[in-house]
Design a binder for these strands. Structure first.
Length: 564
RNA sequence: UGUCCUGUGGUGUAACUGGCAACACGUCUGAUUCUGGAUCAGAAGAGUCCAGGUUCGAGCCCUGGCAGGACAACCA
């Protein structure tokens, strides 16, 4: 390195998002002795999606950046909807994304005993009571924005009675839903969450971790803040919908006199042309609109992985979208930019013809095979070269030939010349057609002096085509994906259900594509660039006898854009 | 008719805490290219929701509006 290129000016402070600013201020003031502890708290009731990725990139990222730790904590307070299969999927996703929580894998259910003790304390302080109102009755007692709630008739039950009842609730003496434990806060509060929120409900249900130990389960609001506190979380990062919950968490922390975690809220990620609601994604899976949580059209991390996205591209995306408090909708084009940028540097180029038409080189000897050297990645010399078989009969892309081309068509047409990538310059001479008038073969001649790399190869032609030698080609299935929804905001219509915007053409299966023989070696999830077409990867469905590729994303195509 | 949060190019995020708006994506030119990719060079596009005020000076401060969003599950 003789020349020093100035990439960034070290004097200029990197711009920080508002959370980094808070963290740096806390570090400067010596809060918590400079300790930084974050956590990512998913509920194991569904698969993680790219919105979660934004969140945990932030959680783990802040910890990494400031020498702190980030815990993984499963918020498993609802035994009815949660399951260990989701736990496994979530762990796999976060690891795959490149983050490590070491031995700090926690569960809200680890704290059930502690939470129960906290509840006893609150009851003893006269700040909680056992309520025997039904769900309907509670709802009926709710006030409005400007009217306070009607007090529960059980609100002033004596402490000893509350204690007795709560203990018996825990002991399983009462049926489901017959009573709840409620905090006694402020029925007149403008914040609905402060109007005697429910802390515990009775659920005689088996929990995926605690089994049958409990028949009362804490509500999220009762569990979340204290779980943070128990873990000594210094900066509890979450999305905007929890802003109104914060005063409640702070009230609990105060009453219980426990470690004061600070909650900071940021805006969740929204992506155009997709949905991010776990409930609705589950619906797509259950109703068969997609093939599963890992369907390559899904915005889930499982789906993105199968589609061919890399962890690096998703992390880059999360970095680029930024962190702020205003509602946002990110253009999917940015996600696509991130994966193209990553794969451009990494993915080996290979020849594959998706919609093949036969090309016969009339002046090339029958039965002859040449092995032509071609570069694996022009962006990275270290990826080397390989040999491609070339012969008299090839396949090219049907779209790359037009009998009657428009002005700026740089591809093959009668009488025109193009370069066959890494091979010869050819000129189209004639076509064969079937009874329907469809082209069945294109005949051409090649210039034997024009072989790539040769002295006479300097000649310029306007286009270069990819191809595959017909006798050497392998057949493969290729799955093309388009956006799952036709509407930029499928979930944003009051009158219409999001499913009305499902794109009927989101999946196109091409059963008989022709690919170069080296693809025999490709392994599951390998990333490739099909020259001139896009980035693809090997689907897990792929077998030695039946190769299957997914299109991750097409190449940028200015020609297609001009023509739309 | 409440409380809270938020308003900066098409999209997203900045602006060293008061010094005349920057970066990325997208869009459009041109160069180059054995991928109509990549790369390189360049352009258009906001005067910061509105109206007042403080100040030599406001996207940043103050006042008053307006707009959008969140919140009323024994879900998280």
């Amino acid at each position: 390195m003789t020349e020093e290129k100035e990439i960034s000016k070290p004097d200029e402070p990197r711009s920080l998002n508002f959370i980094e600013q808070i963290v740096e201020e806390d570090l400067k003031s010596g809060k918590h002795g400079g300790r930084i502890q974050t956590r990512f708290p998913p509920e194991p009731n569904g698969y993680l999606h790219i919105g979660h990725a934004k969140a945990f990139c932030l959680d783990f990222g802040i910890a990494e950046e400031y020498g702190g730790k980030c815990n993984l904590r499963f918020d498993d307070t609802n035994p009815i909807t949660e399951d260990t299969s989701y736990v496994d999927a979530i762990r796999k996703d976060i690891h795959w994304m490149g983050f490590d929580w070491e031995d700090r894998e926690f569960y809200a259910s680890d704290y059930f005993d502690q939470l129960y003790e906290f509840a006893l304390k609150l009851i003893e302080k006269g700040k909680a009571f056992v309520c025997q109102l039904s769900a309907d009755e509670v709802n009926a007692s709710r006030g409005t924005d400007f009217e306070p709630d009607i007090p529960s008739p059980y609100r002033n039950r004596p402490v000893v009675e509350n204690l007795d009842l709560f203990i018996r609730m825990k002991n399983g003496e009462f049926p489901n839903d017959s009573m709840t434990l409620r905090a006694k806060i402020d029925l007149d509060s403008t914040n609905m969450h402060m109007r005697d929120p429910i802390l515990y409900r009775i659920r005689h249900a088996r929990h995926h971790r605690t089994g049958d130990k409990w028949c009362i389960y804490p509500m999220y609001d009762w569990a979340h803040g204290q779980s943070d506190s128990i873990e000594g979380i210094t900066h509890s990062l979450c999305t905007l919908e929890f802003v109104p919950h914060r005063p409640l968490y702070e009230w609990f922390i105060n009453e219980l006199e426990i470690f004061p975690s600070r909650q900071i809220e940021f805006a969740r990620l929204n992506l155009s042309y997709t949905i991010m609601s776990k409930r609705k994604l589950l619906q797509l899976v259950n109703e068969g609109h997609v093939k599963g949580w890992d369907d390559p059209r899904m915005p889930t991390i499982h789906g993105l992985r199968r589609r061919g996205y890399t962890p690096g591209s998703i992390r880059q995306f999360a970095e680029t979208v930024g962190i702020a408090k205003r509602e946002n909708v990110i253009d999917v084009a940015l996600l696509e930019f991130c994966i193209r940028e990553d794969l451009n540097k990494q993915a080996p180029r290979v020849m594959a013809v998706l919609n093949p038409v036969k090309l016969v080189i009339d002046n090339y000897p029958e039965g002859k095979t040449e092995y032509l050297e071609t570069v694996n990645n022009p962006e990275d010399e270290s990826m080397g070269t390989r040999l491609l078989p070339f012969s008299r009969e090839l396949y090219i892309e049907r779209d790359d030939f037009m009998e009657d081309p428009p002005k700026k068509f740089f591809r093959l047409s009668p009488g025109s010349e193009v370069r066959l990538k890494s091979a010869y310059i050819i000129k189209a001479e004639s076509v064969e057609k079937n009874a329907d008038g469809n082209i069945t073969a294109i005949h051409c001649t090649c210039d034997p002096e024009s072989l790539s790399g040769g002295e006479e190869a300097r000649r310029k032609v306007k286009g270069t085509l990819h191809w595959v030698s017909a006798p050497h080609a392998l057949s493969a299935e290729v799955r093309l994906y388009d956006r799952l929804f036709n509407d930029p905001d499928p979930d944003g219509h009051k009158e219409q259900n999001f499913k009305e915007f499902l794109n009927p053409d989101s999946l196109t299966v091409l059963p008989d594509c022709k690919v170069e023989p080296s693809l025999k070696e490709a392994k599951e999830l390998d990333h490739l660039q099909f020259t001139r077409l896009g980035y693809f990867n090997v689907d897990p469905d792929s077998t030695a006898d039946h190769m299957v590729f997914n299109r991750t994303v097409s190449l940028k195509d200015t020609w297609a854009k001009q023509n739309q």
